[in-house]
Structure formats: C-alpha cells, structure tokens
C-alpha cells in the first residue's frame, strides 16, 4: 500500500543519516567523539528498525528494536565507564 511505502522512504532517509554520522565516527579526533557518534547511530538504528517493521508488516522487528535500544544503552554506559579511567 501507499502508506507503507512512505514508511520505507523515511527508513531510507534515516539510513542516509547513519552514513552521515559514520563520518564523525571515522574522523572524530578523540575517543569520546567516536562514542557520541556511536550513540547517535544506535538511536537512528532503533527508529529505522521500527519504521522497517511497519513497512514490511513484521512486528518482530519492533521487538528487536526494543532489545537493541536496551543493549545499546548498556554498551554506552560501559564505554562511558571505560572513559572515566579504566574498568575498575
């Protein structure tokens, strides 16, 4: 249907932004810069997964997005902890 095509287009645009953020992930002068870029990419990927799950009519993809959001949050906390001065 037409409405689902709209969701597909929006997901494609968000994937384009993921590539833009990857520029900072590769170029970032310090480690925190790269971590911030990774955090942004995680958020964009969650939104993309929800949109794709709607576009293809697969509710499972939305569940994957929930799990991805929580796991990426833990990964972010882990990196932040590492930046604070080693894993103690």
């Amino acid at each position: 249907m037409i409405a689902e095509f709209g969701f597909l287009v929006a997901a494609a645009v968000l994937v384009g932004y993921v590539f833009v953020s990857m520029g900072r992930l590769m170029a970032g002068p310090t480690t925190p810069d790269r971590a911030v870029a990774l955090d942004t990419i995680n958020t964009l990927v969650v939104a993309t997964m929800v949109l794709l799950g709607t576009a293809f009519g697969q509710v499972v993809l939305v569940d994957v997005a929930i799990v991805y959001a929580l796991l990426s949050f833990i990964a972010t906390l882990y990196i932040a902890r590492y930046l604070e001065g080693g894993l103690r």
Partner: peptide
C-alpha cells in the same frame, strides 16, 4: 525506553569525557 535511556547515556558519556 528510548526516552529514558537516551539522555542518561549521553549524561554518562559527557561525564566520562570530562573525567578522561
């Protein structure tokens, strides 16, 4: 979940960056 975790994660990153 996104609304809860996103600001918390960025706060942790900011603090980690300052400590680093």
């Amino acid at each position: 979940f996104l609304l809860i975790t996103n600001p918390t994660g960025s706060h942790a990153l900011a603090r980690g960056a300052h400590r680093a």
